[in-house]
Design a protein around this nucleic acid. Sequence first.
DNA 1: ATCGAAATGACACTCGTATGTCATTTGACC
DNA 2: GGTCAAATGACATACGAGTGTCATTTCGAT
Lengths: 337, 337
Amino acid sequence: MPSGKKVTLKDVSAASGLSLITVSRALRRPETVQEETRKKVLKTIDEIGYVPNLMARSLVSNRSNMIGVVVPILTSSLFADFAQGAETVLKGANLQMLLGVSQRSREQEAEAVRTFIARQADAIIVTGFTHSDACHKLLKAFDGPVVETWNLRPEALDISVGYSNFDASADMTRYLIDKGYRNIATVGGAFENNDQATDRQNGFLNAMRQAGRSVPAENILAVPNPTTIESGGPLILSLMDRKDPPDAVFFQAELPAQGAMMACLSRGIRVPEDVAIAGFGDLSISRLMPVPMTTIKIRAEEMGQRAAELVVQRLNKDEVPTSVEDVGFELMIRKSA
Amino acid sequence: MPSGKKVTLKDVSAASGLSLITVSRALRRPETVQEETRKKVLKTIDEIGYVPNLMARSLVSNRSNMIGVVVPILTSSLFADFAQGAETVLKGANLQMLLGVSQRSREQEAEAVRTFIARQADAIIVTGFTHSDACHKLLKAFDGPVVETWNLRPEALDISVGYSNFDASADMTRYLIDKGYRNIATVGGAFENNDQATDRQNGFLNAMRQAGRSVPAENILAVPNPTTIESGGPLILSLMDRKDPPDAVFFQAELPAQGAMMACLSRGIRVPEDVAIAGFGDLSISRLMPVPMTTIKIRAEEMGQRAAELVVQRLNKDEVPTSVEDVGFELMIRKSA
DNA sequence: ATCGAAATGACACTCGTATGTCATTTGACC
DNA sequence: GGTCAAATGACATACGAGTGTCATTTCGAT
């Protein structure tokens, strides 16, 4: 273990022969000390390797400069994009991101939020609007900006940055209907504690209803949580084995859609001739697949950036004009449907 | 902004009518207070929503329970897996992960490390062995476990957990040679400040040399940093347009390999008949591609877990038997080469 | 009622940094 | 040598939690 001990301001003071106060001033208000003194301090700091203790500083200033961010999982491109977007903006504002992973469990989300609060985070960014009572209470009592992301809902706690999962899903469904598909199945996933997934499902059902289409129960399917590329293949193959197979399948998550397409192609099932496939999420590979995927593009990185930007604005006491920001989505009509 | 003010132990004391000391004891050494008192304290805490200030606690205990982790990028499945692995283990040990993204820049890495130290992180986990002088100095002076990951190198600072990029690359190269490919090209990427990429390149070159194969300069290619799925297609198409195109291309990164395969297939270039493609990284889709990808599996999540586990062990003052841990890799021989 | 132990409280001090008030030193200028 | 401002220093206090020492209160057992 590389070892040195903690070097404090006091050590800098001792090593430089200057008083603690002067050293402190040289760093915090350089204009109040002589240039020469300041240089001496900086030189000493460099020599003995002093790094200021931000925790102690935070205790005094009542600002930790840390921002808590909760994501359901990291190992999903979109959430990684989101986290990366947030991290970039936060770093630019000299803020440290605290990352928590909830695994889509309300308890883990609450635990992460509790930890952020205990660590004196200045703001908290969470995914979705579905929280446990405890978590809700914590966030409401929290003294700082709270951003809910990845969806739009009326019951926002404070700020929200997202897109309408309901509308996105409904738009895609309408597109499929307009395209003339008559036997449309849908595959949801990761419903637990997940308003995004629920809204996607409802968006589909609503659009179908509005078009006067009934949806037989066997056309509403789901893959286990977390959604993976592996789950799509077996599912669509079992669908295609039916005597009245669907002519279109709308996957409410991208990975299973990709897996489904791969499975179809390797079984000689043509996409979209034999079955159309639509996804949700638009990963970078989707466009390059053997049959480019028709899907919904989500601006995950931008969402992370905006969430962070709004936090920064709030913390700087600038007003935040709108507290609900819709970053939108985009139907990517390609070949697969 | 949800608002409440900071609630301190003192407030609990006031609200409960108990002295500060008793409240403190009720929490820290429950056996020294009466059961009834303890309950009263807990009830008050719940009522007024007290959350302990871990920063203040850390100041005294000299332990922040935060662990800094630097990754080059988050938006790469493997690094996300790695971070997720680390996060899971750290959370299990009641440790908070501080995530820093270096974008493969030495300066940003150094900056992240400096921040971790300033925030009193108890341990630091970095990617690779290539650090700026400043960063190296910081890590050497750091008073806590330092883990270098994603490679194995003799010049480790402290602990290291990784696999041999050199060997992995060399193994794949030998496999291609043994398979009878005679005109093998390679595509590297993200070489800047990246010992992993460098070692992969050298592993290839070394294996070729040992097999008595010369590698013409035009067979050594690179994609820009960061590596993307988009870069693979144009590159392999230009290769295949040569009058003496390679019969195998070893991509030292997975995404360009995937992009290359997709591009070939949509151009009617058969894989592996017209050109074999090998990758490095084995993302979950690789196995499911139209032509399953021959590649090298890296245990990214496990690497993150082990790095975190070793940190936890060290912090618990248990001995860490080996300070160099090889998590290995695996050649995944599939159809594409 | 008395004794003793357990429970609780009071006070001082620590961690590293920051700041406000006031005192002292330094140096330049006349 | 005297004056004044700038630079520096000393001291106290704060942030929130925690500990050590010692004093006081409470309560049960005798």
